[in-house]
Write a protein that binds this DNA or RNA. Structure first.
Lengths: 194, 194
DNA sequence: GTCTATACCCAGATAGAC
DNA sequence: GTCTATCTGGGTATAGAC
């Protein structure tokens, strides 16, 4: 555990993380979080001074969780293609949640962009974690030159799937597109350049 | 003009349309809209009783605009493939706005889903307009059986592009993916079925 | 149709007792 | 660390004069 982080703060951050995902950042009030954690509104401010502080903590928490997940994927699959399939499999695994609330990263970035919130770059960094990890896998597949573009392409495809699945409340569409993503990966044209 | 709609109401709806897109629905207040239109808060309620009423009017307004746009595309391009390229070209044409605020339809649906707002199905209908129009074009290209899946695929790709362009504030990425979309369209495998 | 004034509520945030 | 009580601001919405 990091210096300065207490058990109560962790509970607040985990609850806020979930509520920001389910209801959105702006639409989640201090009272909502405090109620779910079981704290009074007044006590809440002992742990976090402002709402932006909670957002910062939530993004940092998501960043740690993401890095752990990426490391676990790297352990579970020996080859780069298998690792990329782990990423794609995330859509299947979280299909129910995605159908209801979209992608946690994408919807947060979308909201912060509208709010012109200064934390948008930090939130986008969550995308960057996936982007760099995916680019690394594509590079190991031999696509050195186009690794980043391939990573962005795959990220974009995933985002579109999440957005439409949520708008249409349609889980079957996710599975249909996941199949196409795996086909796309299996049939990538050979690497360009030397 | 429809019965019951006045010039002032139209000005309100057009301003609300823009502000909902730029700032989000929940984050846009009556005062914001009234200020930009040049009305007092009190007078505002003469034209619209509740915020939901404005949202309903904005969605209806967008629906009319979308149907006009789709009809115009159908006029500008004689063949179905050209019409689909008009859809893809929308990403290029609106690249600057998309980079800043995402897709108007996608971001609205994302927000309404989080708010569990009863107008989400109406907002999703805006997607359906594109979906059915695109499916029609793919059917005319001979893809009768997979027309809807192709339409959803293209819609999803566009949504992902808009989401990432906005998160990374990156317009070049839009152009890069638009090129890939046009390639995808040109190199579609031949229709299945008989 | 347009205005001012105001009611009312809920949000973020603070003070101070325990 | 936790609580109750409170301040302040902004939001939706209404009443009533002009």
């Amino acid at each position: 555990m990091q210096a300065g982080r207490t058990a109560t703060q962790d509970r607040i951050v985990e609850t806020a993380d979930r509520l920001f995902y389910e209801r959105g950042y702006d639409h989640t009030s201090f009272a909502d979080i405090a109620d779910e954690v079981g704290l009074s509104r007044g006590n809440f401010y002992y742990h976090f001074k402002t709402k932006d502080d909670i957002l910062t903590a939530v993004i940092a928490h998501r960043s740690r969780k993401t890095q752990q997940m990426l490391a676990a994927w790297a352990d579970h699959a020996a080859d780069p293609a298998g690792r990329i399939r782990q990423f794609i499999g995330m859509l299947t695994m979280n299909a129910a949640r995605i159908r209801r609330h979209g992608c946690p990263v994408g919807t947060l970035c979308t909201e912060l962009a509208k709010l012109e919130h200064p934390a948008l770059p930090q939130a986008s960094q969550l995308f960057t974690l996936f982007r760099q990890w995916l680019a690394q896998q594509f590079a190991q597949l031999g696509y050195a030159l186009e690794a980043d573009a391939l990573a962005m392409h795959l990220l974009g495809r995933s985002q579109g799937i999440a957005t439409l699945a949520s708008a249409f409340n349609d889980e079957a569409y996710i599975q249909q597109e996941v199949m196409q993503l795996n086909q796309w990966l299996a049939q990538l044209p050979p690497p360009s350049g030397k």
